[in-house]
Simulated scan of single mutants.
Amino acid sequence: MHQFHIAAADPALPEAVALLDELSARLAAITGNSGRSSFDAADVRVPGALFVLACNVEGKAVGCGAFRPIGEGVAEVKRMYAQVAGAGLAILIHLEAAAREYGYHRLRLETRLVNQRAVAFYEKHGYARIPNFGKYAGRPEAVCFEKILN
Rank of each mutant, 00 (worst) to 15 (best):
H5A: 08
I6K: 06
A7M: 10
A9K: 10
A9E: 08
D10W: 00
D10G: 00
P11T: 06
L13T: 15
P14E: 08
E15L: 02
L19V: 01
L20A: 08
A25L: 12
L27E: 11
A28C: 05
I30D: 14
T31P: 03
T31A: 15
G32Q: 06
R36M: 03
S37V: 07
S37K: 13
F39H: 14
A41F: 01
A42P: 11
V44I: 09
V44M: 03
R45S: 13
R45K: 15
R45Q: 15
P47L: 01
V52M: 02
V52H: 01
L53P: 08
V62H: 04
C64K: 04
G65P: 06
A66W: 01
A66H: 10
A66N: 06
G71P: 00
E72T: 04
A75D: 03
A75F: 09
K78D: 06
V84P: 08
A85R: 14
G88A: 09
A90P: 15
I91E: 06
I91K: 02
L92R: 04
I93A: 14
H94F: 14
H94K: 01
L95E: 09
A98K: 12
E101R: 14
Y102A: 13
G103R: 05
G103Y: 07
L107Q: 07
L107N: 11
R108N: 10
L109E: 10
L109I: 04
E110Y: 00
R112W: 03
R112L: 06
L113A: 13
Q116M: 00
V119W: 10
V119I: 01
A120V: 03
A120G: 04
G126R: 04
G126H: 04
A128W: 00
I130L: 06
P131Y: 01
F133Q: 12
G134S: 08
R139T: 08
P140I: 04
K147V: 11
K147D: 04
K147Q: 10
I148P: 08
I148N: 14
L149R: 08
L149H: 09
L149P: 11
N150V: 10
